[in-house]
């Protein structure tokens, strides 16, 4: 029995490379100031989907929501073995919080339709909220298996998996369809395949084509070769705009502060034996250490 997977991935700023200049005044991230990468745990979700495809057959569709430039993660997914990439991009989706994001992505999943599994990374490194996966599961009325660490089997549409709950684990079983969020410990994501990289080097979305000055005829040509990455806006998804973007986001940024944390008193200690002994004496005499 074959199983079709939809993997939801995000292009994120590399938070290991953040400087203070990377914030806009309104508290949003100035993504342009940072290198953009494939969210690490989304690669684990993709890997799991590819393993399912290899074991049982079926397809892997990868969806991302973001600026047209987020197409890069879709190409990266195609080069690892995904069958189809879908870019959801629309100015009216800007400033979506996790709830609005999950609404839009759930519309995209419905629009694709035929699926057995929806997979997400456990969380994205730019916010670490881990909210979008469970919110999509709720919107699609699917059971959710969060923190998946191992997929044991799928038999007759019933999946058995192990989840890591921090202070232990659970082995659980669920009848598909279901939504999974995948941990970084689940697997080692494969690198892009050489042949696939050659194949998908020229894959483009419509907006990328337009940016490069491509014509409608070019789009048709790409499509015929299977290299046109699907691009959908909120109208294509028949999304209800009241639940999208800024209006659809219940959370608002009230204030952004630079933090100034200061110790009340500070002593500079010389890194010499004498200096260190002096500090140790003080810590002993004020009973900080015994």
């Amino acid at each position: 029995m074959a199983y079709n997977s939809i993997v939801l991935v995000k292009q994120v700023p590399d938070t290991k490379a953040v400087t203070g200049k990377a914030m806009n005044d309104d508290g949003t991230v100035n993504r342009a100031a940072l290198p953009a990468i494939f969210n690490p745990e989304d690669l684990n979700a993709l890997e799991l989907a590819l393993e399912i495809k290899e074991r049982y057959g079926g397809t892997v569709t990868v969806v991302t929501m973001g600026l047209p430039s987020a197409c890069r993660v879709l190409r990266a997914a195609l080069c690892r073995g995904a069958d189809r990439g879908v870019l959801v991009t629309d100015r009216r989706a800007a400033a979506s919080d996790t709830l609005a994001t999950s609404y839009i992505l759930s519309c995209a999943v419905k629009h694709i339709g035929d699926y057995d599994l929806v997979l997400c990374g456990r969380q994205a490194i730019d916010g670490d909220t881990a909210q979008v996966g469970p919110q999509i599961a709720e919107k699609l009325e699917l059971p959710q298996i969060t923190y998946v660490e191992e997929l044991h089997s799928i038999e007759d549409g019933v999946m058995t998996a192990k989840r890591n709950v921090g202070n232990g684990w659970e082995k659980v079983q669920v009848k598909l369809p279901a939504l999974l969020t995948v941990m970084n410990t689940a697997n080692t994501p494969r690198p892009a395949g050489g042949r696939l990289m050659m194949q998908y080097k020229k894959a483009r979305s419509l907006s990328e084509l337009e940016q490069d000055g491509g014509s409608a005829a070019d789009a048709e040509k790409l499509k015929a070769k299977g290299l046109l990455i699907d691009q959908w806006d909120l109208d294509d998804l028949k999304a209800d705009l009241q639940w999208c973007g800024r209006d659809g986001s219940p959370t608002k940024v009230h204030r952004i502060q630079s933090v100034v944390l200061t110790a009340t008193e500070q002593k500079e200690v010389e890194p010499t034996d004498d200096g260190l002994r002096g500090m140790v004496h003080e810590l002993i005499s004020d009973h900080t250490i015994g």
Partner: peptide, 14 residues
């Protein structure tokens, strides 16, 4: 704490 190293965000649900 929001994104980056030195910023604290205050969020509300009005």
């Amino acid at each position: 704490p929001a994104f980056g190293g030195n910023i604290i965000a205050t969020i509300v649900n009005p």
